[in-house]
């Protein structure tokens, strides 16, 4: 068994942010193990993706270009990756822990009877093993996880690793046939509606969030205005979502999304442990809250104890001025 493989999630010829991060982490793992790095480029019309994978540091590209792979379906991707791994027996398979990466890794691990270490936020290589650090118990504890025997399948959390940078490297990809024909794939995609509400929470480098303190759906207006000026995504606490002020896909926390932006601005959020579980790995946390005893101030790096309806417009105006908007 030798070689580190990394799955390159892509759409419309672009490599997803989480896969750019995964390539960087996989490069580190491959160098630590002293093994070559192979990028798995699967999809339809993915020549440019293969070139980009070389440029981002892959030593080799193993690809499959077929109409049946145009839209991700685990029943098309899973058997193909399983088959390739059986033929070439890599020691490590890495993927970003996106919804699709999680499905693919779980499928391949089940079919190869391999161990799967999921959702790492840091990677080290020790004694030939890729060791992950990951939060468990809703971010209340940390653990070190690794696959002790056989092929190691590993997924990595979004925004926990820097994106791989261009190396100028080029190469020739090896192209293979799909493992399953279209008429053998039971699942059919009959519709897709891409998200139209701006920046995605898990990819965002800045998140501006609102909680119970915004007081109602209209209270999110100043939150959105600040987010707009900063190019940020809009987040929310469970209290605001449960009250019906903002849709669920904005929820950050234990039963929402786990995020780790560079900057998290929490407005009118008390900072219950469930909310902290979703955002405590943010690099810089700012809390705006009227209550100086709110638990969010224990986690925050900077705080303003005041009415968010006064602070937010002032911040929006200030950043407009500074960012020339």
């Amino acid at each position: 068994m030798s070689g580190v493989w990394v799955w390159i999630e892509n759409s419309d010829g672009d490599i997803s942010a989480i896969s750019r991060e995964a390539i960087g982490a996989a490069r580190t793992a491959a160098d630590g193990l002293g093994q070559p790095l192979t990028a798995l480029v699967l999809g339809h019309n993915v020549d440019a993706v293969a070139d980009a994978a070389f440029d981002l540091g892959a030593d080799a590209v193993l690809g499959c270009d077929d109409a049946s792979l145009a839209h991700f379906r685990v029943e098309a991707y899973g058997p193909l990756v399983t088959q390739l791994a059986q033929e070439k027996s890599p020691s490590v398979l890495l993927a970003g822990a996106s919804t699709r990466g999680r499905d693919l890794a779980a499928w391949v691990a089940a079919d190869l009877d391999a161990g799967l270490a999921a959702d790492g936020t840091a990677v080290t290589v020790e004694d030939g093993k890729v060791k992950l650090t990951r939060p468990v118990y809703a971010g209340k504890l940390l653990s070190t996880v690794f696959v002790a025997e056989g092929m190691q399948i590993v997924t990595l959390r979004s925004r926990a690793f820097p994106q791989a940078e261009s190396t100028g490297q080029t190469g020739t990809a090896e192209w293979v046939d799909p493992a399953v024909a279209e008429d053998e794939i039971p699942t059919k995609v009959i519709g897709f509606a891409s998200k139209d509400d701006g920046v995605s929470l898990t990819d965002a480098s800045i998140i501006v969030s609102g909680g119970r303190g915004v007081g109602g759906p209209e209270g999110f207006a100043p939150v959105r205005e600040l987010a707009g000026v900063l190019g940020a995504a809009v987040g929310a606490s469970r209290a605001a979502v449960d009250a019906g002020w903002i849709p669920y896909d904005h929820q950050v926390g234990q039963t929402g999304k786990t995020v780790s932006p560079d900057l998290y601005i929490a407005n009118g959020i008390s900072g219950a442990i469930q909310h902290q579980a979703g955002m405590r790995t943010s690099k810089i946390i700012v809390a705006v809250n009227k209550d100086p005893d709110a638990p969010i101030f224990k986690l925050a790096h900077y705080g303003i104890v005041a009415d968010l309806f006064k602070v937010l417009p002032a911040l929006t105006a200030e950043f407009k001025k500074r960012l020339g908007k």
Partner: peptide
């Protein structure tokens, strides 16, 4: 037939 939430959008799929 179900609707699924992927990272980048909502997908409608059908399966046996």
């Amino acid at each position: 037939t179900v609707e699924r939430l992927a990272d980048d959008g909502k997908e409608t799929v059908t399966a046996p």
